[in-house]
Design a protein around this nucleic acid. Structure first.
Length: 289
DNA sequence: ACTGTTACCTGATTGC
DNA sequence: TGCAATCAGGTAACAG
């Protein structure tokens, strides 16, 4: 379930287990993902020490001491499973077919050694290598907009991005050049909090509403990240899954349910589902105009 | 330049 | 119960 908060939680889980460790083994099981894994990936990984992690939008960057960063995207169905090397394979059953990359750290006195599996049935995910010094110049990162939780994302910057656009505000917020890391769920949730219809043309969002929208985006993402961290010990669930946690969505996936902010029928018909550019939008037409 | 649609894949769920 | 249709959290390549 990888939007920004999930990717952040997965990244923290990887950091907790891998940072400072040497990758004793790396195996590529099938390289034909969204883009083929780069040639030499396994060789670059094997024997390298993991120095640090960073998230940019929905991408994870794992830095290696050799000067390369491993750029990981989870796509739609990508997951990371982790477990002690001594437990054997991290994935079972159908997952085993879809474990496209496996990493193992060296055991040491204070650490049992960990095995990490990158599982992605739909194979929309990707892995690439980029020199750490030029991470942000990678073609997948070069055109990304501001990080929504940074000070660089403000009413002023969002307003500039929405200005003059005829596209619905929903589509504008999904456009990673305007703000980086939002996906379908958190766009729906942020628009609900801000009281703005997903169908509103981007240019018709007022200055006051833009301010409200920026606050809503930061709040909804911040709360989801906090929930991810607080509901998992070390970000690893008992089954080895990284980055999953309970959500409290107000509109996403709730078509037909009553809206929390409304008195119910006949004044409010509840949460509606519409399709915009081929994707579901959930909203309350009474709260969001 | 801008906007909307299509395609990439597999698996889970819905509907007949 | 079985099978087909629909839908899924992302994003790049298109077409207009």
């Amino acid at each position: 379930m990888p939007e920004l908060p999930e990717v952040e939680t997965v990244m923290r889980g990887l950091r907790a287990r891998l940072e400072g460790r040497v990758l004793a083994r790396a195996r590529i099981n099938r390289p034909d993902m969204r883009w083929p894994f780069p040639p030499g990936l396994a060789q670059t990984l094997t024997g390298a020490r993991v120095t640090s992690f960073r998230r940019r939008a929905k991408y994870i960057l794992m830095r290696l001491d050799g000067g390369d960063s491993v750029l990981i995207h989870l796509g739609m169905s990508g997951r990371m499973l982790i477990g002690p090397v001594s437990n054997g394979p991290v994935s079972n059953g159908p997952d085993m077919l879809h474990e496209h990359m496996t990493l193992e750290t060296s055991p040491s006195a204070d650490d049992p050694g960990w095995r990490v599996g990158f599982i992605d049935p739909r194979r929309f995910g990707s892995v690439d290598l980029v020199p750490t010094a030029g991470e942000d110049s990678h073609r997948l990162l070069a055109d990304l907009g501001p990080e929504p939780l940074d000070a660089g994302f403000s009413a002023a910057t969002l307003s500039a991005a929405l200005d003059g656009r005829r596209t619905p505000v929903k589509a504008a917020l999904l456009d990673q050049r305007n703000v980086a890391g939002l996906g379908n769920i958190y766009v729906c949730e942020a628009l609900f909090r801000a009281g703005i219809s997903p169908e509103r043309p981007a240019h018709a969002v007022s200055a006051a509403e833009t301010k409200k929208l920026v606050k809503a985006i930061k709040a909804v993402l911040g709360e989801a990240i906090a929930a991810g961290g607080s509901s998992l010990r070390d970000y690893v669930q008992p089954d080895g899954e990284l980055g999953y946690f309970q959500h409290a969505w107000k509109v996403y996936g709730r078509a037909g349910e009553p809206c929390e902010n409304c008195p119910g029928p006949p004044l409010c018909a509840g949460i509606q589902r519409i399709v915009q550019s081929g994707r579901s939008s959930f909203y309350c037409p009474r709260v969001q105009q």
